[in-house]
């Protein structure tokens, strides 16, 4: 009995500490206000948090910033690699370097008419590496469990992820794709865990807004688009270009709509995830900014309470968005490979 109570108490303590850490670190690095010369600018703070950057700023001071490598490609100079610390002098002021200037998170060439493509390991790319490494380490460990103990009950990390894998398989992929689900299961599992981990890691203190970046969600949406259209069968294309059961005259309207629909599906995937995650971050940061705008204890207290609440909702949203993205991807693939059913109508 006592043990149970202690256990519960310990859990409660953990949750409290975790929430506090999340709030403290998400809190607006009060110094951000100083950077703008005294006047606190919430939109700058928020943009700084949800946009990409060439350095990873944890806290102010000498060791507080991780300068990430800049990789540039231009037709005249070829590939250039250098540290983003070159854009800062010893007083942390932005300086020009090697014919480039660093402006609002973008590296621009000084010379007129030059174009440069930025392949830098930005904060989001670094976070991407972290996410990928974490996924590979975790799921190889899970797979090892199955190799070591075939036909036995799961153990350790394996038992943590098995229900989730089985959930994705049985409740997302199978009902939407049907009997041929096995071909698409690996992609959809990767998708689910990539988004879920990205969302959860994005809520961590100092984290990058990875899954709230339109490039990241866009690439995943395009991959789903490719999977969908490359697996599309005769029925699917027939439905798009020659919608059955529609009078000939109406086909001039329906077919363009169907063709647009092929492209709106991935676009909706891309925008949904990007908006849900970015909006969550913006809400939390705005509420925290309130404290620095009003500079009042009362507002601080109220804001903190609401932020705790929103953070818990964000944890939920992180999971729901991973579920929704995977579910819609499965649905689109399922519709593309569905067998012909028209004769039943």
């Amino acid at each position: 009995m006592d043990e149970g109570v202690n256990h519960k108490r310990a859990n409660l303590l953990k949750i409290t500490v975790l929430s506090l850490v999340i709030i403290l670190f998400n809190s607006p690095l009060a110094v951000a206000a100083e950077e703008t010369g005294g006047a606190f600018n919430p939109s700058e703070l928020i943009n700084h948090h949800i946009l990409d950057a060439h350095e990873w700023h944890f806290f102010d001071g000498h060791y507080g910033t991780l300068f990430l490598p800049v990789i540039l490609y231009s037709s005249d100079k070829g590939l250039e690699v250098f540290s983003s610390s070159n854009f800062y002098d010893e007083h942390h002021n932005i300086v020009e370097f090697n014919g480039y200037k660093y402006e609002h998170g973008h590296i621009l060439p000084l010379a007129e008419g030059r174009t440069v493509i930025d392949f830098s390991i930005t904060k989001n790319v670094a976070f991407l590496f972290l996410n990928a490494t974490l996924m590979i380490v975790i799921f190889l460990a899970v797979a090892r469990g199955y190799k070591k103990r075939p036909r036995e009950a799961p153990k350790g990390i394996q038992s943590l992820f098995e229900p989730i894998i089985v959930f994705v398989r049985d409740d997302i992929v199978k009902p939407n794709i049907g009997p041929k689900y096995e071909r698409y299961l690996p992609y959809l599992l990767t998708l689910f865990f990539f988004i879920w981990f990205g969302n959860l890691l994005g809520l961590m203190p100092g984290a990058a807004n990875l899954t709230g970046n339109i490039a990241v969600t866009g690439v995943m949406a395009i991959i789903t688009f490719l999977f969908t259209n490359f697996s599309g069968n005769k029925t699917y294309w027939g439905h798009v270009f020659n919608t059955p059961g529609v009078p000939f005259a109406l086909k001039f309207i329906i077919v363009p709509v169907e063709i647009i629909g092929v492209f709106t599906k991935p676009i909706s995937l891309m925008i949904r995830l990007f908006v849900a995650i970015t909006a969550g971050h913006i809400v939390i940061l705005s509420l925290i900014s309130l404290i620095f705008i009003f500079e009042s204890y009362m507002v601080g207290f109220a804001s903190t309470l609401i932020v705790v609440f929103i953070t818990f909702i964000e944890l939920l949203v992180a999971t729901i968005q991973a579920y929704v993205f995977t579910m819609f991807s499965s649905l689109y693939i399922g519709l593309a490979i569905e067998e012909h059913h028209e004769e039943h109508h």
Binding site: F119, I136, P186, Y187, T190, A215, V219
Partner: peptide
């Protein structure tokens, strides 16, 4: 950003292939 699109594509595909072969 083009850079992020590039890295996301590369990393996502690598993660997908690695996990496909050794995990999923």
């Amino acid at each position: 950003g083009i850079g992020l699109i590039f890295w996301q594509t590369v990393i996502f595909i690598i993660v997908f292939i690695v996990l496909l072969t050794f995990a999923w």
